[in-house]
Design a binder for these strands. Sequence first.
DNA 1: ACTCATCCTG
DNA 2: CAGGATGAGT
Length: 614
Amino acid sequence: MNLSLSDRSVQGNKGSHEEDKPQLAHPYFHRTMYDDSLASYSNGSIISQLLRKTIQSKKALDDGLFYLPATTLSTTALVDSGQEDQDSTSSGNSGERPVSEHLRAKRARVENIIRGMAGSPSARVLGANEQADEESHDNRETYKENKRKQRLPLHQDLDSAPASRGRSSKDEECHRLRGQLHAMQSLLRQLQEKLFRVQNPNDSEHEYGEEFERRLHNQRESGKTDSDQVMIHSGGRNLQEALKYELSKAIAESVDLVFKKFSPTLLVPPSPSHISQVPELKKRTKTQSSLEISKANGEGTHRSLNYYEGSEGHTPEDQTEALSLVVRKPPLSHPVTASPVAKRPYPLSHAPFQFSYCSPLQENQILGHLLKYGPHSSFGSLSCLPPPVDRSSTDSINLTWDAIAARAKVTSNPMGHRPQPTTMGQVMVDGLSLPTIKVECGDSQTMAERNTYMSLRNIQEGLTPSHLKKAKLMFFYTRYPSSNVLKTFFPDVKFNRCITSQLIKWFSNFREFYYIQMEKFARQAIMEGVSGTKDLSISRDTELFRALNMHYNKANDFQVPDRFLEVAEITLHEFYNAISLAKDSDPSWKKAIYKVICKLDSEVPEDFKSPSCL
DNA sequence: ACTCATCCTG
DNA sequence: CAGGATGAGT
């Protein structure tokens, strides 16, 4: 068995054809079809497009035949939607277009909407202050004394953070959000009216959604609070009603939430959470210089052009345990076992706002955001964890959003979706910019503002396969991430004890695999009579690297940083030396190695701060 | 008492 | 990868 480690030093520098690219320019971010599809919608007026298409296909809308099997939500539907028109015209099938074609077209479009709405319904974010609070507490060291010392100045940064300039920005933010909410309400009502007119040209408006709501209520009573079911078994008309109902109610909820939380007494003091991304650059220099490290050749650039397909299969198993594994939300929400549904229906006229509040541009963006991220995505973030009582009232809605979000997640790209690395001031919401905030943040965006901004996105209740993939990629940079780092780089995750533990456990597992591999290959090298560590280098075409890459970067769509190769090599050397010196007779012989390796963490690139689940 | 890292196991 | 056991550290 050839280890292919020993000859590495010989050919060490062979492939210098590809010089080390700046690692920040991640070329592995792929756009998914899904992203593109959404992007096209985000540019124009989502509503007008939707309505136009709806009207066009209205004449073919055959009542009662429009099913939306939830399980068919997939990117293929999106593709269909784009090609539907041509398909139908090209079908030389006389003058009458097959009804099924229209139905499919319409379904695709509605699915588009639903997909757009995908978002965690229960999105709740740590308020900025709360987060800062946690951070200060969580700054307790995680990894041994060394790390602790390094983190001390970070503490100081935290404490000395100016506490003066959050107030006014909070107020402005409140103002802006009120404006957005007003606008959204207006827009929503317009949308509802238009939809209603489209499908019920003759009916009077007051019948809106009655039938649907009644049925939804009945389902709830019978324990099957699954609005997907409702949709599935409803006709196309009822589907639209369902959508309208969901949208309006969700918005009403959000509005209510925000207004409650933004009452003056609840305005929070500025957050000291400019947590200091204090670079930890110095800590590894000494070890580094003492070792001879082969330059990685550029062989590893064979990135696949495939879209990311969740590599960890999506089993339909429901997540039932409290201490969770990777959360795979059920494709179809299962019978509710928790939280009784306290009904608190909001009349649509909950808040009669003026439509002229915002510009047409804002309309599109606001509504687009709403459609894309769901009602709770933006506004839940501004509230500081609504009490359970509040939440119970939204459960029926949440279930729907949950189910929708779950399906959307299945096809989502974990994180790579931006062709260009983002900078602090250029955070995009997945192709949908939020200028009202972005503009004001400008280039002097602080961490607090950034956090606020980030919190405008979905907040996950649990960790998803996407998060797992992201964590694995992060492992290339940091083997021992602190809980602060984890929080920073998983901004779309609502952290609690369980989640934190799970993430830590992940990295623990990563390390385990890493060290096992290192030990294995070190022993192998010794067995093969490798004379010394000089003959042990790790390049991208070594077996060891392949094993690691396969584990942490299965899709191979990530350019593993050269630094990781260096660290891996150091690790290998450590193991080699220790084993050579028979130190492995000591039961805790690995500890010394761990201590070395834990100092070699790098900073994780900014790109990883973007939420992984979109 | 609590958290975290590792080891071991499935 | 998760769960349990164990030990170290606070």
